[in-house]
Design a binder for these strands. Structure first.
Lengths: 344, 344
DNA sequence: TTGTAGGCGTTATCAA
DNA sequence: TTGATAACGCCTACAA
């Protein structure tokens, strides 16, 4: 690598005794170069450790080979893995990631963030903000046409928006139906914060599964947490008080489920005998709680890869003006463990 | 924002009836501009929605205001939060993050990654790879002087290297000493993978605390896991077999501790009566296991901020040729809960 | 197949 | 305090 006193394409051209365009053509492959000259050039490139300056390249070619990721909630299971998936897919396809995090999705100004990404000449943006709120309406009111494609994660489908997501509604249906089929009658819900799109979808899935079974889903069956184990614990206490006949519980994520199970245990309720519990996420800990937690597994890494794939398709096609609309949903699966064993 | 048919500094200059240099000076503040002209320019900038192209700016100013993050282990508690901290500090100070992840730190070629970052003209790099291995030796043999500063996370101190870290050794000492002081005699260890620097440090802390108490630390007291709850479960079984007199256990992270507690429970061992357990990390679940888990809390977000702060200092000072060496260690703290209650 | 020259959008230098 | 103009490093017509 050597202590780069920046070596430029000119240095290479000079050393290889060819013109800069030849060097450029060797490197980009945009025009054919005689095999012999190419070898010569590559050799010099290697020897000098030349790496084309991507700023300069991006400036003239109008493509930075960089995509902007706007994310939040990296402290949670899903979002952090999804970011890993995005990076994998992107780097495998020669793209770099410019990362912006939003820390308060409810209030934070998003225009500066997008503007900054644009100033960096990113080729596309992945909007990976799980929370609904003004960050959504900003996009939805359509007042902000962007010169580059955008792919949305955890977002409702919307005409003109490309989005990929886990099918959270289906996952919750899986969980709830499983509880019903194993003989449970009274199924409570600890929901995630209503500011999260996924939380709403999971609640919807829970309700629709109950409805499909001819059962009501009333507000008193529902408590809302903030994803934390602590909120799960509190929600459980509240739920038992107002809905004492509850014999099963769907919890919108595993962390809250862990809190809820702790609370059940403190109330001397047995799981699954007195009350069955199903979580969501399948975090590593889920298989090692007591009892081991039944939960819904989602392909979070795959989701990230999918988002990048979708974005790159848009980027490629936008050069050719073809418009395509593929909103894809990944199907989660149910992992049955001890916490929801059928009663005998 | 408008459908950016890219508006350039020339457009602004023309509309404001000034020269491009004046516009530039207004925006960068590099040279004083008359208040009146400045107002005029700013107004046009606003009206046209002009944003300086950062590629162009970086090309000529030789500063991209971008820092490269090379990380791995984002699926774990510490690294994911640390990334959040880095982003916060960076964005607050006007820097963007270019993110590269390493997926197999043992074998992955690192030269291409560094080279790519360099090609992007990042102003500095934060090496946030928790694993030791050839990615370390690559740096340590000193054969790769870089034109930009690098800050290391989770790395041994080394002459000429700037590093910041959690004081893992001290944290493990806290935990182990706590167990000793609460009357435990036989203290086992479930270590993290030896490929992780932090895991080694925690083992060292455990051993040194034992030594300070005049106790031996023998290999049979130690089992190594891979951070997962499952490996913690297995390690516990193995440990009980070969070290049956064990009455306390320090586990190198909370996830493995959860697995270990599950195993203890399956063996009908009571915690803390039969065996006390202390973890490391203070993940949210730790306070809601049964029993609630005593653990070591580290300032993971702060660590990220610190890394960026250190890097930016280097960047600023490297323009002035002052060399400074501040290797900083963040002190973790002990959170005592049920799993290590003193025996009466 | 190769070379020359112009330009990408910005900052920096040098005059005015 | 302001303005022209030359870089920055690269790609890409256009010419040879």
């Amino acid at each position: 690598m050597s202590t780069r006193q920046p070596v430029t394409i000119n240095d290479v051209a000079r050393a290889a005794q060819v013109s800069v365009s030849t060097v450029s053509n060797v490197l980009t492959g945009n025009r054919p170069v005689a095999a012999k000259t190419r070898q010569q050039v590559l050799q010099v490139v290697e020897a000098l450790g030349f790496r084309p300056n991507r700023l300069a390249r991006g400036l003239v070619s109008r493509s930075s080979k960089t995509i902007g990721i706007v994310a939040s909630g990296l402290e949670y299971f899903g979002p952090s893995r999804t970011l890993v998936g995005m990076e994998q897919e992107a780097s495998e396809r020669g793209y770099s990631l410019l990362l912006s995090l939003i820390h308060d999705p409810a209030t934070e100004e998003i225009e500066p963030i997008v503007t900054d990404l644009l100033a960096h000449q990113v080729d596309g943006i992945i909007w990976a903000i799980p929370q609904i709120g003004h960050n959504r309406t900003w996009w939805l009111n359509g007042a902000h046409p962007l010169p580059i494609p955008v792919v949305f994660l955890n977002h409702q489908t919307w005409p003109g928006l490309v989005s990929v997501d886990i099918d959270n509604c289906y996952g919750a249906q899986l969980a709830t139906t499983h509880l019903l089929e194993s003989g449970r009658q009274q199924i409570g819900l600890i929901a995630g914060p209503s500011t999260w799109y996924a939380a709403n979808q999971r609640q919807k899935g829970w309700a629709s599964a109950l409805q499909a079974a001819g059962k009501a889903s009333e507000p008193r069956q529902i408590m809302t947490g903030d994803w934390s184990p602590q909120s799960g614990e509190q929600a459980f206490y509240a739920l038992m008080k107002r809905y004492p006949e509850m014999d099963a519980l769907f919890v919108s994520n595993d962390q809250m489920a862990i809190g809820a199970m702790r609370a059940a245990s403190d109330l001397n309720l047995r799981i699954p005998e007195d009350i069955a519990v199903v979580g969501f996420d399948d975090i590593p800990e889920a298989a090692f709680t007591r009892p081991r937690l039944t939960t819904v597994r989602q392909q979070v890494v795959e989701l990230g890869r999918l988002a990048v794939t979708a974005l790159l398709e848009l980027i490629d096609s936008s050069n050719q003006q073809e418009e395509q609309q593929h909103n894809r949903l990944l199907q989660p699966s149910l992992i049955v463990r001890e916490s929801s064993q059928r009663l005998r």
